[in-house]
Design a binder for these strands. Structure first.
Lengths: 114, 114
DNA sequence: TTGTTGGTTCACCATGTGGCGAACTATATA
DNA sequence: TATATAGTTCGCCACATGGTGAACCAACAA
């Protein structure tokens, strides 16, 4: 469970940068080589590779090299993990606000996922 | 839209730390003063206040002071904003994989929780 | 074989982050 | 008034982050 925390740390950290979010967004539409991925961004390859490395460390993407070109693809399950934490939190919140709703509607036992 | 990016930056950055996630989680169960919030964590008040400051800058929490006690509460809409970006991304991904699924199943409108 | 292209590595730099202790302010409370 | 309590501010530190340019390696292409 401690490890879970570390995973979320690196996940959210990876997403806390517009370049990296753009890369994820781009990769969700299909795999791509490093060079092509880097083209929209006004930064050197070394800097861009660091972003890729952060993404890869977080597990959000994984890459493989064929010949001299490295191809990147996204791991959608990692993305779902981040979303999972958030919707879990929302469930807590909704568990609370639902009591107001229940007071009016009186149905649906809250059943928050611990 | 550029500002949107900055908002997501600080949102995800705020969430990229176990202490801050724990605070958010705690606050989703109800507002609390700084001291009480800080108790579970083994760090000084100054360090903890920096975390609160990061959370407040991101808009995830807001605070108000009455007398000498500052009360913190969460802003669930900010949390929803982060979740929103993620589910938006998932929609892209699912738009792709759904074509495979539809090819086999061709039923059940996915009903994602917006 | 000689370029060119795609990636990689390295040293370096400015800035940000996350923690500390110490000193301080302001509000309750005794 | 005196004292404890809740926050705040400040200076400091170690380390991570995000960028640079330059040199370099490995695979195609001419």
């Amino acid at each position: 469970m401690v490890n879970q925390q570390a995973a979320l740390d690196s996940l959210f950290h990876a997403l806390a940068d517009p370049t990296r979010r753009a890369v994820v967004s781009r990769l969700l539409k299909g795999a791509a080589p490093v060079k092509q991925l880097s083209e929209p961004f006004e930064m050197g390859l070394p800097a861009f590779l660091k972003h890729l490395s952060v993404l890869e460390m977080s597990g959000l993407i994984h890459t493989e090299k064929h010949g001299r070109v490295r191809t990147c693809r996204v791991d959608a399950e990692r993305l779902a993990a981040a979303e999972g934490w958030l919707s879990q939190q929302r469930a807590i919140w909704q568990g609370r606000t639902d009591r107001l709703a229940d007071f009016v509607e009186s149905q649906t036992p809250p059943e928050q996922n611990a």
